[in-house]
Amino acid sequence: MSLHVHSTGPESSICGSRCYNPIESCCCEKEQTKPIRLSPPDQTDAVATVYDPNESICCNGRLSRLKPWMDQCCGDEPYGLAQPGVLCCNNTLHKDREDGEQCSVSGHPYNPAKGTMCGSQFHDSPGKHCCGSQLYNPKDEICCNGQSHPSGINIHCCGAQAYNISDPLKKCCAGALHSLQGDRDDSQCCGSSLKSSKEICCKSEGKELLYGTKKGFQCCGQDYYNTSLWSCCSGRLSPVHPTGKTKSNITESRVLSLVNVNKTRLCEKFHIGVVESVSLSSTVFSSVLEIQGGNVRVKHWPSTFILKTPDYCSYLILTPGKTYFFDEVTIFTGFNHDSVLQSIHFILSKCSQ
Results as ranks from 00 to 15, higher is better:
M1Q: 15
H4L: 15
S7F: 09
S7Q: 13
G9R: 02
P10I: 04
S17R: 11
C28S: 00
E31Y: 02
I36M: 13
T44S: 05
D45S: 09
A46S: 08
D52C: 06
I57P: 10
C59N: 03
C73S: 00
D76C: 01
K95Q: 14
D99V: 11
E101D: 04
Q102K: 12
Q102M: 15
C103R: 05
S120M: 11
H123R: 03
G127Y: 11
G127T: 01
K128W: 09
H129S: 14
Q134P: 01
N137Y: 02
K139T: 08
E141D: 09
I142L: 12
I142Y: 10
H149I: 07
P150M: 09
P150Q: 00
S151N: 10
G152H: 07
N154C: 07
N154G: 13
S166N: 09
S166Q: 09
S166P: 03
L169D: 14
K170G: 11
H178D: 00
L180W: 06
S192P: 13
S196L: 08
S204E: 00
E205R: 14
K207Y: 14
E208D: 15
E208F: 07
L209T: 13
K214E: 03
G216T: 03
Q222S: 13
S228T: 05
S231I: 07
S231Q: 09
C232G: 06
C233A: 04
R236Y: 05
L237W: 02
V240Y: 04
V240I: 10
H241K: 14
P242H: 08
K245C: 13
K247G: 15
I250Y: 10
L256Y: 00
S257M: 05
L258C: 08
R265G: 01
K269H: 12
H271L: 13
I272Y: 02
V274P: 15
V274H: 06
V275M: 02
E276A: 07
L280S: 13
V284H: 01
L289W: 13
G294N: 08
P302E: 06
S303Y: 05
S303G: 10
T304A: 09
K308Y: 12
P310C: 05
I317Y: 08
T319R: 03
G321M: 14
V329P: 10
T330Y: 02
T333K: 13
I344V: 10
H345I: 12
I347E: 07
